[in-house]
Amino acid sequence: MLDKPQLESLPLAADSQARVGVSDQYAPQIVRPSRLSWPWVVTIAYLSIMLLIPMAAMITKSMTVEPAEFWRIATEPVALSAYDVTFVTSFLAAAVNGVMGTLVAWVLVRYEFPGRKIIDAVVDLPFALPTAVAGLVLATVYSQQGWIGQLFAPFGIQMAFSRMGVFIAMVFISFPFVVRTLQPVLQEQEQEIEEAAWSLGASPLQTFVRVILPPLVPPILTGVALGFSRAVGEYGSVILIASNVPFNDLIAPVLVFQRLEQYNFEGATVVGTVLLIASLVLLLLINALQRWGRRYAN
């Protein structure tokens, strides 16, 4: 089979296999170190080629930049402004979806109404619709002459091609996360705990605040963090709906792209590294939130 030569070229994988076989007696299936199963080889080789080596290439590139120089590029005014637009707008979008996503999940789980199934399916549209299409159509709908944009134009509010446009694109792409993380938790919540609270004398408001809401906080925050993480990295929809002008509505991923176009690899790498660190921190945060949420589950 294919695995023999790969086995030799991947001693690391073989080592980890041996350790699994020996150290974990509770393993549902103990992998024998003598025979390296090829799913392991494929998994580790694929992840190395596709993810780990490219990441290593970027990290080593960013380490070739002097720390002081790195700091200077990372904190240039144009970069700081881009972080400001990226992170603040993402946070606002994720927070708005934290509230609205909770409401939508509640409505979808608790109420029966005509069209509920269709609405439920439409929630995933931002996952299915290519971001370039989202950006294109949001820019059109929210422009001064667009279906929704013209409702705001008389009040002097410009939606598309401004920070507001960035916000709208981020709201769109981060919408499903809260709904989808909250829905299963809401569905599993027993009606009985509400009855228990009533039988102990709690009012509807007390029941909601003290009994229904607390177990929902971890999934809501997880959804907000996932949406925030997605919004921070978003590129496709924003580039089409924003004017991408520095110090106005330029986001950090667009700054990376523009620097690459100008062959400013150093500048691109530094800002890209900042973004990468941000996403890794967010990933840790999301993992912690998920663990917190699981604590109450049986």
Partner: peptide
């Protein structure tokens, strides 16, 4: 395995350019 969901697609592209 979940990393690609967290990393900005632009950063993914950047990594490939740098490799």
């Amino acid at each position: 395995i979940d990393l690609p969901f967290s990393i900005s697609p632009v950063v993914v592209g950047l990594m490939l350019v740098l490799l």
